[in-house]
Amino acid sequence: MLSRVDPLAPFSRWYARAFAGAWEGSSAREAVLSALQCRRMAVLHAQRERAADRPQHAAYYREEAQRLRGIVRGELRRARALRAQPVRQPYLLIACSDTKRHDAQPLRAIDRYDGPAYRVLRNSLPVLGNRLPMRILSAQFGLISAQTCIPDYNRRMDEARAQQFLDDDKLRRDLAADIARVRPTDILVMGGAHYRRVLTEALRDAGLPVHVRVLAVQGGIGEQLGQLRRWLHNQSVTDTRDVRAAWHAHLSGGQAAHAPADSRMSLQLPA
């Protein structure tokens, strides 16, 4: 019956519930946007209450306006809490790919490599605002940025090449300098066993602060791609390897640990 008087009334109730729960884990900006939208709906309901020609309709709009004002207060409190938290700064260390585009002219590394991990990465970058600090470990060129233009090549990372990188102080210095510039809080190492070994050893000498989380993918390629996708979107990645725990276990002679039960970062991506 109410829908005949105001077709938007049922939608408004759904609208309020949706805004109450749709922004979990979002940025402070989105929480403020939610509050502004709900405030607008509360004002509209107050106007409808004054214009209602039946007491039950006026009571309904009054109740909905009060509900929406409560959501506004809650969203503003959440926005203030989110602003008080430090900003999550992800940093991806990823291996090159055996699958490449074979264009004759040099291409950016992010475009040259065309394996499954790079497809996941390129699909996720627009959602992240195309702002993801990262470095690529190339078997041919060493540590490069995603924007470095490289020619087509064919070189695999084997044990001998990995050992060359481990003995190369330049790679360690370059990685330490880039980490000092980016100041990440959340690092993921993505790649095959040789690549992970080289990168995690270089990270150990990078002088990371104790609050920086360092994870490495593990398992089959499907599991690794799922871990990469969830990490990119700041979702729980409990099936990754906790590199810091492995370092501590190595020093103490214990077993390497996995990531904690809920390793999702509570920090937020920059708005």
Rank of each mutant, 00 (worst) to 15 (best):
D53I: 02
L76G: 00
V87D: 06
Q255W: 15
D53P: 00
S252N: 14
V72K: 15
R39G: 01
L208Q: 05
P55L: 11
D98I: 05
Q37P: 01
H250C: 04
L228K: 12
V182H: 03
Q37V: 04
V214C: 03
Q255M: 15
L267G: 09
R204K: 11
G254C: 07
E63H: 04
Q85V: 01
T200E: 06
R73L: 03
W231L: 00
Q37Y: 13
M41Q: 12
L203D: 02
A216R: 08
L2Q: 11
V5R: 12
R17S: 11
Q164P: 05
Q47A: 10
F11N: 08
V212L: 09
A59C: 06
Q227L: 13
A81L: 08
A42E: 05
R156V: 00
A271Q: 10
A109D: 03
L175Q: 04
Y113S: 02
H211P: 00
Y61M: 01
D167N: 13
I221S: 14
G222F: 15
A261Q: 09
L33M: 11
N130H: 13
A9M: 11
Q163Y: 08
Y61K: 03
S97H: 13
A18Q: 14
F165D: 01
F11K: 10
M134S: 10
D98L: 11
A20T: 11
A35M: 06
I187S: 01
H258V: 00
A65W: 04
Q37F: 10
L128F: 01
L137W: 10
D111N: 07
Q268F: 08
P126L: 14
R69F: 04
S97Y: 09
L166G: 11
P209Y: 15
A261G: 08
K100Y: 06
L137Q: 06
G142Y: 12
S12H: 09
P126E: 15
V237Y: 14
D53A: 05
A180H: 14
V182P: 03
T200A: 06
L93H: 13
L137I: 07
P209F: 13
V237D: 04
E30K: 14
Q140M: 08
R108L: 06
P133H: 07
D152T: 14
P10G: 05
R17E: 11
D239R: 11
Q85P: 00
E49T: 07
S3D: 06
P86T: 06
R80N: 04
L121F: 09
Y118K: 01
G21A: 12
R88I: 03
A16G: 08
A79S: 11
R69M: 09
A271S: 10
G142I: 08
Q66W: 07
V210K: 15
G220K: 14
R29I: 00
L128A: 01
H57G: 11
V182L: 02
G254M: 04
Q255V: 14
N130C: 05
A216I: 07
